[in-house]
Design a protein around this nucleic acid. Structure first.
Lengths: 342, 342
DNA sequence: CTGAAAGCGCTAACAT
DNA sequence: ATGTTAGCGCTTTCAG
């Protein structure tokens, strides 16, 4: 179990000093060459430095450099649930973009707002990051205090907030498209599964959805609230179909919720789309459900990537702005929507 | 678009020096108090320092400390696919444990071995991390060279490797349990969907599976290889059922693959479990399929957490060892297994 | 019990 | 064209 010395924390590697000694120049000269390319350094010296650096496979010590430059080269991401493919996809887009921009990515999965606040404090106040992408709701007092009391460049992704810029998609358009799809198929009794009180993104989808319903002269749509999970969708569908005049078609505002709704329909002996039509949001998972979900695409990865771009802009002092990704939602017809029964 | 100064890279915060000045002592004294509790510092001085630190909400500057101590307080994770719930769950377990141990987590999603190697080099040679969890296969020359040429404490998770310690689960037992389940239900024509050539984890599950088949006197089982994805399982089931003597029951070595197989069965008009039984691995998703998957649990989060514990041990110089999580696989009966047809 | 000094590896302003 | 100096914020001997 025990055995001798702690490992050297990290393998010993060449430093500027080593190169300087080998070549016979000062470390500052080496630094110049290795950073700004060494304009204003004699070609011969430069070459010698470059050669030696290559020979010893020199890599700058990120920490040392960062301490000096006051930049960490790291971006943080706060998200509520790593196993939710919607977040995972968004994060992937963000990470790819961050990597291209030369940043590493620090991820913190935070279940609730209290944990969000403490993760925020940790990352920010220890100065581990240059900026932060926030994919969690941040309307709690703790969180607002954490951010305002300790500001760092940050952008919200897939959420709007009073305390920062945000990158979102056109949720309203998704909602409209969903309603239109169902109405075009002939339905008049529509239902919505969402998380209206908690999530601004759900609220916007609902608004778009309801707008089109009203325009079509549909008086009312039934609503069921659901936590953003398969289980949430499952329960919500039960409550929607348990009423006295159940809808013949529903819009599930999120893919997970849609999958849960499908499962609940199956349990109730409701056949989709014969007895009930379902339109949801798209993703890999939606292709392999039974029946495959008719769904609306959302540019999640693009949203994540764009968030990083905006964040970079903020870090570099450019004026931040709210952005709505201008890729319009698109309907992918699969098998969960059909005409109303009878 | 443009506007004035770059933001201060990170908000100006109190340093040891500030506290020292305020209290009228030397920074080294402050450091002592704030670290080892200030044993051997006069109670009065200590209190003054503590008070002031609290007043200004002092947080150590991680980079500066790390530069001095040669530890980063960060762990890296290399994984192939963030949207794969199996990895996401493992990573979650690792992150939670890392947080408890006071580490932050740096994640890199690397699609192939070449990218793995370069991510490795980046994290390690810039000395951004104290240790690394590797959830990708690392048998390529690039990767081996990267690791051996630039060693850092590392542990493989859910993969075994010649170039490091690993934390895995008892895959063989899962395979055995799957076979037993199917045989107990009366099946004699069994199929296996896996990724035997590429994944040691799949290989072990297959070995366990086949072992039990042989013990039961079943001469042969059909095999289909599949990339670890829903699509992979989808295609594999088609190829399995397209043969001249298709199995009446299959084991899908991974949840995603199982979901894909289910979808393919539906497309072929094969009813599960009436015409075909399916046993797979478990996870949130498996509950909401149609029909819900009978599946074998795997302690993924525990595996991730344990990997961090082992990694910590290595970082602290203790003898590393291979560990197999000793939580036995468990069968969750749902609806995808039944007796053979006829 | 407390302070002075050195240095982690790097960058950048200034001097030569 | 190159070197000197200073310092980022912290920890850690070693003296006093």
């Amino acid at each position: 179990m025990t055995s001798g010395e702690p490992l050297k924390p990290t393998a010993t590697r060449a430093t500027l000093k080593d190169i300087a000694r080998a070549v016979g120049v000062d470390v500052s000269t080496v630094s110049k060459v290795l950073n700004d390319g060494g304009i204003s350094v004699r070609a011969q010296t430069r070459q010698a430095i470059l050669d030696e650096a290559r020979r010893v496979n020199y890599r700058p010590h990120a920490l040392a450099r960062n301490l000096r430059t006051q930049r960490t080269g790291a971006l943080g991401i706060l998200l509520p649930d790593l196993t939710n493919p919607v977040y995972a996809t968004t994060v992937r887009g963000a990470m790819r973009q961050a990597e291209m921009a030369g940043y590493v990515t620090l991820i913190a999965e935070v279940a609730d707002e209290q944990r969000s606040a403490s993760a925020y404090m940790r990352l920010v106040s220890e100065r581990r990051i240059d900026g932060l992408i926030i994919a969690v709701t941040a309307e709690s007092r703790e969180m607002i205090e954490a951010i305002e009391g300790n500001p760092v460049p940050h952008v919200f992704v897939n959420r709007r907030s009073s305390i920062g810029r945000s990158v979102t998609v056109d949720d309203q358009a998704s909602g409209r498209l969903a309603a239109q799809t169902l109405i075009d198929a002939g339905h008049t009794r529509l239902g919505f599964i969402g998380s209206v009180p908690d999530l601004d993104t759900s609220r916007r989808r609902y608004n778009g959805f309801f707008e089109v319903c009203r325009e079509a002269g549909l008086a009312s749509v039934s609503i069921a609230n659901a936590p953003v999970s398969r289980r949430g969708g499952f329960d919500a569908l039960h409550s929607l179909m348990g009423g006295r005049s159940p809808p013949t078609a529903i819009f599930a505002f999120n893919m997970l919720v849609g999958i849960g709704a499908l499962a609940a329909a199956r349990v109730r002996g409701i056949q989709v789309p014969r007895d009930l039509s379902v339109v949801s949001l798209d993703g890999e998972d939606a292709i392999f459900t039974a029946p495959p979900l008719t769904a609306i695409t959302t540019p999640l990865a693009e949203m994540g990537a764009r968030a990083v771009i905006e964040l970079e802009a903020m870090i570099n002092g450019r004026e931040p702005q709210d952005v709505v990704i201008d890729i319009p939602p698109r309907l992918v017809m699969r098998e969960s929507v059909g005409p109303p029964p009878n």
